[in-house]
Amino acid sequence: MLSELQKKAAQAIVNVFETGRPQGDYGKVTYHPKDPGELTYGRSQTTLASGNLYLLVRDYCAAPDAAFGPHLSIYLDRLANRDRSLNFDERLKGLLREAGQDPVMRDCQDRFFDRVYWEPSLTAAKNMAIASALGVSVVYDSRVHGSWQRLRDLTTDQMGNPSQVGEKAWIEGYVRRRRDWLAQHSNALLRKTVYRMESFRSLMDQDKWGLELPFVVRGVLIDASVLLEPAVRVSAEDADAARLLRLQTPALHGSDVRRLQEALVRAGHAVTVDGVFGPETAQAVRAFQKASGHLKADGIVGPATRAALGLES
């Protein structure tokens, strides 16, 4: 049984492979024409072609208080049908990037990747008598990256199963064969991912079978401070109640934006109170500033505009 810290360490390795960050990048959107997964998204990069992107977005849209749920819900049918034109839909990509900043989306992704990838990896590892944290991470990486069963069966046919040859020997053999398979793959993108197996090989050489901290993957330090850092950090409005509010990408969102929108409504401006600083809110801010007669109508909410709206500075 892996500890919670070992689980985080195992997942951090794959997060680094997928997004370059131990905590993952919840808003990362990627598309490459030679990637069989097509449009990919999120902390561990789930794909349009697999149908899992649809499942993730569906979960998010069904969640209470999903800030971008109404906007993304119009894409659900096309996501379910794996519509390849979505690979080029810049509005969808922008919405996904912005949604990645929403704590609701982050929570959905954590639960989704556990359910779809991590828990099946634990089951697969258990069925193979693989118990080490590093061994489980290898299985998890292969299930995220693809072709776990194919390379598992090839390794077992050539070596026997882990119970016969020992877990460490089997994992070493699997990593070696998977690296060779990737290196010789017809898809040039997959050939470039041999670093994944080389990273695991390096951890084996360091005898990090329990994923003892600290260790380095692809130049990224993974230690307790990184793994225990909350994926959703203290929001800017909690750290600084007077942050500038303006239209940007990803969109600002939070309780301070909601208070702004409520103040604009009280001032007679039509704006949706959803806690997201979008174009509608920016337009309402400019209208309020222009009507005041003394504020610069730039759509930016600083101390002067806050004071005029009766908000705390």
Rank of each mutant, 00 (worst) to 15 (best):
R218A: 07
G299N: 11
L264P: 12
V165W: 10
D180W: 04
A282H: 15
R106I: 12
S199K: 12
D256S: 12
T249M: 06
P33H: 02
G100P: 01
L221R: 15
C108E: 10
H71E: 15
R179K: 11
A66G: 05
L211M: 07
H32F: 02
T281F: 05
A183W: 07
M1G: 07
E172C: 07
R82A: 14
I74K: 15
L260Y: 11
A231K: 07
R233Y: 02
F215R: 14
I74W: 15
S50M: 13
R143G: 00
L182P: 03
E172H: 08
H269N: 10
S147L: 07
V232W: 05
C108V: 00
L39M: 12
R246T: 00
R111S: 07
W209D: 03
A49R: 08
T19N: 11
L53G: 13
A224C: 04
H32G: 00
I13T: 05
P120K: 09
Y31C: 03
R218N: 11
G173R: 06
I130E: 04
L227A: 06
K93Y: 00
A236G: 08
R97H: 01
W170P: 07
M197G: 00
D256E: 11
Q45L: 14
L245D: 02
I171M: 09
T47A: 15
R152K: 15
F17K: 08
S292M: 03
V285M: 14
L134G: 11
T156C: 12
D77R: 15
V276G: 04
Q158Y: 05
P70L: 09
R233G: 04
L189G: 12
A242R: 13
S142P: 00
H253S: 09
L252I: 05
D107L: 04
S313E: 12
M159D: 06
E18A: 08
V232T: 02
L221D: 13
L311A: 12
A307T: 00
P22D: 02
N15M: 08
E4K: 12
L55A: 15
R97N: 02
V144N: 12
P36K: 01
M105K: 05
E4G: 11
R43H: 03
A125G: 02
C61P: 09
A307N: 01
R266I: 07
D25V: 01
L264S: 09
R115A: 15
V175D: 11
V138A: 09
E4W: 11
I130R: 04
F200S: 15
V139Q: 00
T156S: 14
A66F: 00
L96P: 03
R152S: 14
D35T: 00
Y31H: 14
F113T: 01
D180A: 02
A304S: 03
A297N: 13
E172N: 10
R115Q: 15
L2K: 05
G135F: 05
P22W: 13
V116D: 08
A9F: 09
S132E: 12
L260F: 11
